[in-house]
Amino acid sequence: MSQKVFIAFQDNDNARYLVEAVMQDNPEAEVQHQPAMIRIEAEKRLVINRATMEETLGREWDVQEMLIDVISIGGNVDEDDDHFILQWN
């Protein structure tokens, strides 16, 4: 059985950069556009890297800033200063 992790963001300006960064670091992930939200799912594991986000945004970015735009998640969370990871074991 497949085991998908997912994250959903509000479809706003911040989310565009998040999606761009996520797709760079997780090329196999699938992006789904739904009314007012963007949902990204991937098999077993999805990572958001601070470095990639800062590159995309062109400014400093705190991983916890993500809390403002996230709608929902599925998977075990592992967060530190440099990344946010969702995964199933």
């Binding site: 007012a36 809390l67 735009d69 709608i71």
Partner: peptide
Amino acid sequence: FVPFMSGAAYNGDMATVTFGFSAQSDEAR
């Protein structure tokens, strides 16, 4: 929440979409 808020977005209810997603941002935690 997700169907309720997507439903609000699909039915032109900006206020509900916004409170719903704002609440959901806490929900992830």
